[in-house]
Simulated scan of single mutants.
Amino acid sequence: MTTADLYADFAIREAHDVSATYERLSLAVSRDDELLALLGTLSPSKRQPNLLFGVVRFLGGPVEDPADFHDFTVANWPAIEFEMRGRATQTNEAGRCALLLPVLASLPQPLALLEVGTAAGLCLYPDRYGYRYGDHVVGSGDPVLECAATGMTPPAGVPEVVWRAGIDLNPLDVTNPADVAWLDALIWPEHAHRRDRLRAAAAVAAAEPPLLVRGDLVDDLPGLLEKVPAGATLVVFHTSVLYQVPRPRRQAFVELVRDLPGHWIAVEDPDVLPYDALAEPPGEALHNVLALDGKPLAWTRGHGQGMVWFG
């Protein structure tokens, strides 16, 4: 896929009906030879729309008008390039806990959670948030995560978590204003509810910080597993992480995690983590697949806003 195709595809499959600003901007970049040439100086993994748009917003640049975006990006490319080379799209969307909850609540309790690609660890608190699946409310925490779910019965309550830890090449600190500013910059412009959710989730994490380890998902995961307390069900999970991992390392991770003495929950693009005989996705928009121990269970939307259960 060319860089132009990448941005056009993002506009159609991810931003359409979710962010008019990013849909318009992505289509403009897909037709902008000057910006495409600049992006072409980066490795393919660093050309992502979310990364470019997040960095421009992080640096105070405009994203509402494509012409203003073009001028700012060209004029400030050295600074933008520096940030894009050194950063990753660590969205850390707490809303994805609404996708995890039905699986987590079904496992033997209590749980020891270990998140791969954890960023600031906001998805390590599924027991502290509240949830609303249509008219069905689960839990009583703040923020309340809303998810349009079909084909499944919401759980009766939240899981019991006795240990939580995460591993990331560059873990973020919710008590560091610069790290929180980066997380905020990655939230799409119109999504004020997600900004409110970020602040509420960050307050939860700051009150009881998880164990966050800087490390590689293959080389350093076994060492972290040694800290899992006895008597708890280990759950290793990740959401929209593996697309940033080179294919050989991705396969090595899968071989490692599928044989662990616990459970493995994945929420990933099926082009990144494929499955045999997968049900048809519900529409043209990008959907990830929720899977437990390698078995696909549901189609999910990227920010946790919806899921269609088929497992």
Rank of each mutant, 00 (worst) to 15 (best):
T2F: 00
A4D: 08
L6A: 12
L6E: 07
D9C: 03
I12L: 12
H16W: 05
D17Y: 03
A20W: 00
A20Y: 00
Y22E: 00
E23T: 07
R24L: 00
L25D: 07
S30F: 01
R31A: 14
R31W: 00
D32E: 01
L36V: 03
G40S: 06
T41Y: 05
S43W: 07
P44R: 11
S45L: 13
S45H: 09
Q48M: 10
P49H: 11
L52Q: 11
V55S: 10
R57D: 02
V63L: 05
P66G: 13
D68W: 00
H70G: 12
A75Q: 08
A75V: 01
P78L: 05
A79L: 10
I80W: 00
I80S: 06
E83K: 11
R85N: 06
G86I: 01
G86D: 08
E93S: 03
A94I: 08
G95D: 05
R96L: 08
A98M: 03
L99P: 00
L104S: 07
S106T: 00
L107Y: 06
P108Q: 05
Q109V: 01
L113Q: 07
G117T: 06
L124K: 00
D127E: 15
R128C: 09
R128I: 02
Y131P: 00
R132V: 12
R132P: 02
Y133R: 09
D135N: 11
H136K: 07
V138K: 07
G139C: 12
D142E: 15
E146D: 13
E146W: 01
A148T: 12
T150W: 03
P155D: 14
P155F: 13
P155M: 13
V162I: 14
V162Y: 09
W163F: 15
W163P: 01
R164T: 12
A165G: 15
G166S: 11
G166H: 08
I167A: 10
D173V: 08
V174K: 11
P177F: 11
V180H: 09
A181M: 08
L186C: 14
W188G: 13
P189E: 10
P189S: 15
E190T: 14
R197Q: 15
A201H: 12
A203F: 11
A203D: 15
A207T: 12
E208L: 10
V213R: 13
R214V: 11
G215L: 03
D216T: 11
L217V: 14
V218P: 03
D219K: 10
L221M: 09
P222D: 12
G223A: 13
E226L: 10
E226W: 02
V228Y: 04
V228F: 04
P229I: 09
A232T: 06
T233H: 05
V235Y: 06
T239W: 04
V241I: 09
Y243C: 01
R247C: 01
R249L: 08
R250A: 09
A252T: 07
A252I: 04
A252F: 02
V254W: 13
E255S: 14
E255H: 14
L256T: 10
L260W: 13
P261G: 04
I265E: 07
I265C: 02
D269P: 04
V272P: 02
L273Q: 12
P274L: 03
D276A: 15
A277C: 02
A277E: 15
E280F: 02
H287Y: 13
N288Q: 10
V289P: 06
V289E: 09
G294W: 00
K295P: 02
L297S: 07
A298D: 08
T300A: 12
R301A: 07
H303K: 10
H303M: 06
G311D: 12
G311I: 06
